[in-house]
Nucleic acid binder design. Structure first.
Lengths: 185, 185
DNA sequence: TCAAGATTTTACCTTTCGGTACAAAAAGGA
DNA sequence: TCCTTTTTGTACCGAAAGGTAAAATCTTGA
């Protein structure tokens, strides 16, 4: 197999950032080509399915990152409180303290939701389930854990919306502090 | 002035629903024409500025609705606790208990945010300010009121994202109950 | 009734969209 | 080396996008 000048795995993060900035429909092949430095030929060589396959790859990578860095720690970490703290730190870093948008959330509000419905739904389900698991380990009842996890996820997503709407990332940082405090209470 | 068969004011709500469903870019003139029953000629007669003017009109109408039905009551209502309860009821109705998306929030995450930045930003600022005003009247400190209002708005927006992502409107209803309880505590 | 304005129909324009075809070019292994 | 496979460049396609122009039709007040 020929050595790839540009690996598929190198392109996916660039695609992710493009989709975050322009949305699925707004990310034209012209923009994608420009930002990745790849012509249509190369793009369709790596992603024969076109934009849809690109977005699927991006969502898969996001899913893998959260699974490895957030969900697994929450589910399997020895110290649940430490895992929750790590989640808050990790999430804050991932969203660049509120300056970066959640692609999954943006897709959920967009009309592409139907196309990627399963992945979008799974992203939040997995997150909520693993967070609730950590909360149960730290002494919560199962019902309270589910409820608190759901509230926290909504708080995060909403804070990202608000931060972006007002052009003020500090909204997100304040939200994360509130959420962490409540999760550890 | 000739009697208008279809008033501009009759079209705006239809446009709003279209933008909610398809987003700004996704709402093509073909779809708009089909759903409003108006040809391009009529559309450009009422909205010479094209899609941009349509979206501006929709945002203005949303703003007017919230000002008349939510913000004003919060600011000027005699009983702040009753005003907060009315807000929760009104918001729950407006978003169809979570089955309807917040257009302003969706625009905020979209790449059209820059184009309508002022209106998007004002929507949330006005909401937060009026809610905080009601909280202060009900005994909150100014700082706590701002913080609690911000948290509530984020909770609402996040719940709309989650409800849409999981295709489960009950997420939103649970969130509204939590938020109302906390606002009245 | 009739002129003036408001509204709609129809046809058309340019640009850009996602996607395809295919040949040229690299790259690697034998 | 040379043959195979992988990767890229270029040209092209039909469809759909947003928008324009102007004639035709309808409404209404005088």
């Amino acid at each position: 197999m020929a050595k790839t000048v540009a690996e598929r795995s190198d392109i996916v993060p660039v695609l992710a950032e493009i989709f975050r900035e322009y949305g699925f429909e707004g990310a034209s092949l012209a923009i994608i080509g420009e930002r990745t430095g790849l012509g249509k030929g190369s793009l369709y060589h790596f992603f024969p399915g076109g934009k849809e396959e690109m977005a699927t790859a991006v969502l898969a990578e996001i899913d893998a990152w959260f699974e490895a860095n957030i969900y697994r720690v929450l589910r399997e970490g020895a110290d649940p409180r430490a895992a929750i703290e790590a989640m808050c730190r990790g999430v804050n870093g991932y969203f660049h303290s509120g300056r970066r948008v959640c692609l999954v959330g943006a897709f959920a509000l967009d009309n592409v939701r139907d196309r990627f419905g399963n992945r979008i739904s799974a992203y939040f389900s997995d997150w909520q389930a693993s967070l609730a698991a950590a909360l149960v380990k730290s002494g919560c009842s199962a019902v309270d854990a589910e409820d608190l996890a759901e509230e926290s996820l909504a708080g995060i997503q909403g804070a990202l919306v608000l931060a972006r709407a007002r052009g003020d990332a500090s909204v997100f940082e304040r939200a994360m502090i509130r959420i962490e405090r409540r999760l550890l209470a």
